[in-house]
Nucleic acid binder design. Structure first.
Lengths: 205, 205
DNA sequence: ACTCTTCTGAGGGTCACTATCACTTGATAG
DNA sequence: CTATCAAGTGATAGTGACCCTCAGAAGAGT
């Protein structure tokens, strides 16, 4: 007989909760060690020990050491927000709103700003993390390209759409790095706005 | 007394020629092995053996295995071409011309098309190479940002310029990947033109 | 030929990451 | 409550890219 599980609520079971706790334990331990002695000077074994799990478990949760810092949980949020936009809206406007909502949501939880600041500091200073960031942005770009292609009724391999999304994400990544390098002095939403303005008007002049 | 060498012609000495030959030997050996058994299945030691040098020498010439494929010799060409553009010209137009010239120059040597095709195939298929590509594009972006800032009399940390260059390079990178995935069927200059058109007009709609 | 500098090879080491497998533990059926 | 199954974990033993150091070879200038 074909296995037909009784559709357990996501996030319900003890198993799920345990996984979330382990994930957080690893991340917390890692961040603490990164602050203390720096990213590259911290070995994965040490993170594992500090989080009280085995090294293999660390890799089960995070495919690379850099992903402990990055680990894109934003993607699904942006995707949902983008899909929720009205059909006729111009792409860049849809993205603007989707991104604004995502940022808002990310800053919602109380300890978020602290964590984001730590993350920004690492992105700004550790080259291998920046490298991985660019990779993950490329993935995000692919995902958004698919959504946008679907919304506008084009094929996702369409050159024009790819270039469009590549440009938007390239611009926004630079904006993000700008924030990372000046996180104390700038307002994220303001930078996002200025970046989108450049994308809208500035490329022609 | 301060060492004041008699400014040897670049490219003249026996030393220089030998370095170039070694570099080419490594690259050729590597490409041959990559074709034969794939990128990841080829160990650096094997490349070294095939090129008849020691493994350490391979790393002296190429900081990472991926760089054997990428090794940005284009950057200085683009930079020079961009600096040669008239002062008042709009940035995107300057870039268009600089890029067109660079591509032309890259395809100049007789065996270039073959090599470029091989390179494209690797870029299209090997994830770690694509990752490194994005990194190196980020470096190029930084360099072009500096040039453009200089030409327009702004500071290179200026948000608007960074976003502009990030967007342009993000778009062009996607165009390049498009070429890599369809290298047999498309014309590079044509794709470049279409990409630049999107960058000029398309972001607003 | 003589020195100085640059380039190379050898050897040994680090560490991120993988694969395998036995073991434990939460979920599910009866 | 128990038997069964699937999923998650840890121990162990790799692999391979990359780094460091140091001794020797080989152009370059006197």
């Amino acid at each position: 007989m074909i296995r037909m599980p009784t559709a357990p609520q996501p996030g319900t079971g003890l198993r799920e909760r345990k996984k979330i706790r382990t994930r957080q334990a690893i991340r917390r331990a890692a961040y603490r060690l990164f602050e203390e002695r720096g990213f590259e000077a911290t070995r994965v074994d040490e993170i594992a020990a500090a989080a009280d799990v085995s090294p293999s478990t660390v890799f089960r949760y995070f495919p690379t050491k850099e992903d402990i810092v990055l680990s894109d949980e934003e993607d699904p949020i942006v995707e949902a927000a983008l899909r929720a936009r009205p059909a006729g809206e111009p792409p860049l406007a849809s993205l603007r709103e989707a991104l604004r909502q995502t940022i808002e949501q990310l800053y919602a939880s109380p300890e978020a700003p602290e964590e984001i600041a730590r993350r920004m500091r690492l992105i700004a200073t550790v080259p291998s993390i920046r490298a991985r960031l660019h990779e993950s942005v490329a993935d995000t770009s692919g995902m958004l390209t698919r959504v946008l292609a679907e919304r506008t009724g084009r094929r996702p391999e369409d050159l024009e759409i790819r270039v469009f999304m590549g440009a938007v994400l390239g611009g926004l990544t630079e904006a993000m790095l700008h924030v990372a390098e000046h996180h104390a002095e700038v307002d994220v939403v303001d930078v996002l706005d200025r970046a989108l303005t450049v994308l809208q008007n500035g490329l022609a002049d």
